[in-house]
């Protein structure tokens, strides 16, 4: 909790180039990923990304309810991003707010291009994301975990989706913003991609960045996504070690 400050700290990066949580500028927080943690779901994953703790379940393809939601030529992908009341420093009122509705939507759009949805017409694939603890960057952690939960469910995919954010903090471009940096930094740029073909499936930005800064951020995100991709693949294969 030490660096979860109520007021903006004077410096988010110190004179030695270290951030509040002791990381270097282009250092990822530690990522732990576990596949198949839930019994009932068709696929599931649990991710710890820094202090973010997120659990994802995939149900489906399954019969769709209500029936009129059925699409004639593909499965309907539905995502629900939800934060537990105790997941934030101040209690979050349970239930969907506008932020989580938007996040549910952009996460869905980030995962959708990776799936062969046309294989399962008229069905639903439901992705349930529960943020148990948040420390900045929950959407990229959610996407990273959801994509392997989908693979765990045996849903045909073109590629996994890896995600990471970059941003601008104290005038410097940094990788993987924590909550203080997200809150007090100058810009936040979450990106998700299918690493095999380097296709961007999620990109959002808020804050202010020049085009050069944007390009640099994009580059460090791509490199990070490649690393995260390896973590994802390892976690998937780990499940089947006997």
């Amino acid at each position: 909790m030490s660096y979860l400050l109520k007021e903006k700290p004077k410096k988010l990066i110190n004179e030695n180039g270290l951030r509040l949580d002791g990381r270097k500028r282009l250092e990822l927080r530690p990522i732990k990923l576990k596949v198949g943690t839930l019994k009932n779901a068709n696929g599931s994953a649990y991710i710890e990304w820094g202090r973010n703790k997120i659990i994802v379940a995939v149900y489906g393809p399954r019969e769709i309810h209500p029936k009129h939601m059925a699409l004639p030529t593909e499965a309907r992908l539905r995502c629900r991003y939800s934060m537990a009341a105790f997941s934030t420093p101040e209690r979050k009122r349970p239930g969907p707010d506008r932020r989580s509705i938007e996040l549910s939507k952009v996460i869905k759009e980030a995962l959708k291009p990776a799936l062969f949805l046309e294989r399962f017409p008229k069905t639903a694939i439901d992705v349930f994301i529960e943020v148990l603890e948040s420390e900045g960057g929950t959407r990229v952690a959610s996407i990273t975990a959801a994509s392997i939960a989908l693979a765990d469910a045996g849903i045909p995919m073109r590629d996994l989706v890896a995600a990471c954010a970059a941003g601008k903090v104290d005038g410097q471009i940094v990788l993987d913003l924590n909550s203080a940096e997200d809150m007090y930094g100058e810009a936040d740029l979450p990106i998700a991609m299918m690493p095999r073909k380097k296709e961007i499936t999620l990109i959002q930005m808020d804050g202010k960045m020049s085009i050069d800064e944007f390009n640099e951020s994009l580059k460090i995100c791509i490199d990070a996504c490649d690393k995260i991709y390896e973590v994802q693949r390892k976690a998937l294969i780990e499940k089947f070690k006997v």
């Binding site: 952009v106 759009e109 959708k112 291009p113 740029l189 299918m194 073909k197 380097k198 296709e199 961007i200 499936t201 999620l202 990109i203 959002q204 930005m205 808020d206 804050g207 202010k208 960045m209 020049s210 085009i211 944007f214 390009n215 994009l218 791509i222």
Partner: peptide, 19 residues
């Protein structure tokens, strides 16, 4: 000349297309 918001609404983009 600063970007202040980006939102990919749907689909995918290559890095070149993004730039």
């Amino acid at each position: 000349n600063k970007i202040c918001a980006i939102q990919k609404v749907f689909g995918v983009l290559s890095i070149e297309q993004m730039k």
